[in-house]
């Protein structure tokens, strides 16, 4: 088992042009270290392809291609089917797509890929907006966050501002789906290894801070990756062959301000907003715990 103590030395994502402290680039670097050289990466239009494919140079050390924005799932299952046709069995097919490419425009292709049951690992690095084109609101933007298309802070009419990707993936009955965060590296590394072993499609939804889009310090990426989990805003959930598990199930959460306070995108949140956010979080945790009980047949 690869952990933070024995992370392999070779680098497969180096020289890239992501902003300093970019969480998405950490997700790609760690994942490729785990998967190693026998791997094909598919990355749709978005920050990670823009900063990785820097013609005539290349920051990726594995075979990799850019997918059309909406097509990550389709390209992944196509590559997997092609490898199968050539009798190649030891190559992992992995996708790295942003939240826009996953929760919004690529959702249909992802659903189709889940349905085709090819062996592939789909990783959504979630920076909670369309960053590469200038921080527009996506289906994964949280309540209250300022983006260039929600300059006063996003205030949805419903209780569920973020699309629930883990439930959407699980609803397809795929063998493995999980959430993770760059703040909990061992949990993330373990999940990548599990997901890569699965026969069939697997899905990881990873919290990946974006200092440029969020207005936080470049050195806060890992800290935010921890506080978002500790405040209960990013539950660590694992869906494995029909059973759901909470990797962390705290009795009490850290105060929301320990997370929101570090980011300019939440600067407009009032005390009443924070109370709303807390109530939504608590409701979502009740639903999550009910899901766990239900999946265990309780």
């Amino acid at each position: 088992m690869i952990t933070i103590k024995n992370l392999p030395e070779p680098e497969y994502f180096v020289g890239h042009k992501a902003c300093g402290g970019c969480g998405g680039s950490l997700v790609v670097r760690w994942t490729l270290k785990v998967l190693g050289e026998r791997c094909i990466a598919v990355i749709p239009a978005g920050c990670m392809s823009a900063v990785g494919f820097i013609y005539p140079q290349m920051a990726l050390g594995v075979n990799a291609m850019i997918a059309p924005f909406a097509a990550t799932g389709a390209v992944l299952s196509g590559v997997a089917r092609g490898l199968k046709a050539r009798g190649i069995e030891d190559v992992t097919v992995v996708g790295f797509a942003g939240d826009g490419a996953t929760a919004d425009i690529g959702l249909q292709a992802l659903s189709g890929a889940f349905d085709r049951r090819e062996r592939m690992l789909y990783i959504c690095y979630d920076n909670e907006a369309y960053m590469n084109t200038g921080i527009q609101k996506s289906g994964a933007t949280p309540f209250g966050a300022r983006t260039t298309t929600s300059p006063g802070g996003y205030r949805p009419e419903t209780d569920a501002p973020k699309k629930d990707l883990i439930r959407i993936a699980a609803a397809h009955g795929i063998p493995y789906a999980a959430t993770a965060s760059v703040g909990y590296a061992n949990d993330f590394l373990k999940k990548v290894q599990k997901a890569a072993q699965v026969e069939g499609p697997s899905f990881l939804h990873v919290f990946a801070p974006c200092p440029t889009g969020w207005g936080c310090d470049a050195d806060s990426t890992v800290r935010l990756g921890k506080s978002v989990v500790d405040t209960g805003l990013w539950p660590l959930v694992e869906w494995e062959n029909g059973a759901v598990r909470l990797n962390r199930n705290p009795a009490r959460f850290a105060p929301l301000e320990t997370y929101t306070g570090e980011q300019a995108r939440f600067r407009r949140l009032t005390a009443a907003d924070l109370a709303d956010l807390e109530a939504t979080r608590d409701r979502q945790w009740r639903a999550l715990r009910a899901w766990v009980r239900e999946s265990a047949g309780m």
């Binding site: 020289g15 890239h16 290349m58």
Partner: peptide, 12 residues
């Protein structure tokens, strides 16, 4: 760092 790009010389 040890990496395939280093071996190939195709550096960023």
């Amino acid at each position: 760092p040890p990496s395939p790009q280093r071996n190939s010389g195709a550096l960023a």
